[in-house]
Design a protein around this nucleic acid. Structure first.
Length: 426
DNA sequence: TCTGGGGTCCTAGGACCC
DNA sequence: TCTGGGGTCCTAGGACCC
């Protein structure tokens, strides 16, 4: 049996999510902003056609977009996460062999389909997702994941009502690779694209035909893997099983405005640390080390090279205790903080993660660990039922009206999870 | 005034050992 | 003070992804 992968990609996902609940925006330009309303991270086709670029700073385009009548939204991850789960549930009706690759993309195993059924199957899938969730998707099919990605890009370019592209025979693949610029190949970033461009490799077909040893030497094994995948031999498997446990967990945010006082940064860092340790416990891990990093404005006129500073500490024994992590985080922060700097962002990374069942208990504090575990479980439950703000530490301060809280001036409602929100508000 | 957040993998080079 | 080769482990940094 030949392998066959489908890549299903939600079109302009965040913008589409917002539009599902604002049907009057159908056919109108819509954009969604990053955290802090910083830059543009999703655009409907109409917005793309206005020349609005991905990643463009919002403040530079604000006036232009207002004139053009573009609907602007702050990012609402609660909504997008919920919509993403709905899409996945529909996809699972078509095959259980599915890998959720990101919030808006899934790889599916189509190896079991007869070749002549692939197109109709893909079209049916597309229609059902649209009908049941309101989200338009494009479907690309190919013998490897990388070729499925290539197919998907082309599917998007086809007439809006199709959105399906299947690559099976060699001549179709050849043509598809000719049409694909090398910088648009999955696994080729800015640096490699520039290098390839410089030696005259402009499209994916030319890249595929480079000698393997040149690729290995200049682009490491990851580059070689990409070439092999373009040649049709599958090197990157579907990871359909349980998502592997993360090896690092990080929480960070830019401040709403620059901050120079230690106490305000402490509030932000403490809030991030609580969030981060909640993620840690959700995947049932313990952390062996903690890192705090702090950024000054790298866009400032007099930007010095050391806009980034970080400090790490190893914990005496792997821990998932919020109180302990908070102590360490704030101690590290105090070592790094310098008066007179204008800081724009702080974050925490938990690393050297170990699964709960493998934790080496600190023999001197067995009792404490048990108590801590119970306390943490109670906190997690409370927060899950009543929201993050339900239980806080004094050091987290009051997020509302603080300088460090995110800007979110165009936030939509949490339509799909509003019921829980109402409960919370009571 | 205003430029996101959260990850993974690979490699080179240093530290250390015998 | 100088003289060697070979191996492992760790870390920082680079490149990539969405």
């Amino acid at each position: 049996m030949t392998t066959r992968f489908a890549l299903v990609d939600c079109s302009s996902f965040y913008a589409s999510c917002e539009r599902v609940f604002r049907p009057e925006l159908e056919g109108k330009p819509v954009v969604v902003l990053s955290n802090n309303d910083g830059c543009i991270i999703a655009r409907s086709n109409e917005a793309k056609n206005l020349g609005i670029k991905m990643g463009a700073p919002y403040f530079q385009l604000r006036d232009f977009m207002e004139k053009q009548g573009v609907a602007v939204f702050s990012s609402n991850y609660e909504l997008y996460g919920d919509m993403s789960r709905r899409v996945t549930n529909v996809l699972l009706q078509f095959t259980p062999n599915l890998e959720v690759y990101s919030i808006d993309e899934s790889f599916m195993d189509f190896s079991h389909l007869k070749e002549e059924d692939v197109i109709s199957h893909s079209k049916q899938l597309r229609e059902r997702v649209l009908q049941w969730t309101g989200i338009p998707v494009s479907v690309g099919v190919g013998p490897t994941k990388t070729l499925a990605k290539v197919a998907n890009r082309l599917a998007k370019k086809k007439a809006a009502d199709e959105g399906v592209m299947v690559l099976t025979n060699t001549s179709d693949i050849e043509a598809a690779l000719e049409q694909t610029e090398v910088r648009d190949v999955w696994g080729i970033g800015r640096q490699h694209a520039a290098r390839l461009q410089a030696i005259g490799v402009g499209n994916a077909r030319q890249f595929r035909d480079l000698p393997a040893d040149w690729v290995k030497k200049n682009m490491a094994v990851t580059g070689l893997r990409t070439v092999l995948e373009l040649r049709g031999s599958s090197c990157i498997n579907l990871e359909a099983d349980e998502v592997p446990a993360k090896k690092n967990i990080c929480t960070s945010r830019s401040f709403g405005q620059p901050i120079s006082t230690l106490s305000e940064i402490e509030e932000a860092l403490s809030t991030h640390t609580v969030r981060c340790s909640t993620k840690l416990r959700r995947q049932e891990s313990y952390a062996g080390a903690i890192t705090v990093f702090l950024l000054t404005n790298r866009f400032a006129k007099d930007a010095s090279s050391d806009y980034y500073s970080s400090k790490s500490a190893r914990l005496p024994a792997a821990s998932n205790s919020e109180t302990q992590l908070l102590r360490y985080a704030n101690a590290l922060l105090k070592q790094m903080f310098r008066k007179g700097e204008r800081y724009v962002k702080v974050g925490v990374v938990l690393s050297e993660l170990v699964p709960a069942e493998q934790v080496q208990l600190d023999i001197f504090s067995v009792e404490n660990t048990e108590k801590q575990d119970k306390l943490m479980m109670t906190l997690d439950n409370l927060r899950q039922r009543f929201g993050h703000a339900a239980v806080k530490y004094a050091v987290q301060g009051e997020e509302k009206n603080s300088k460090w809280a995110m800007k979110h001036e165009h936030l939509s409602q949490c339509y799909t999870t509003r019921f829980e929100q109402l409960l919370r508000a009571r």
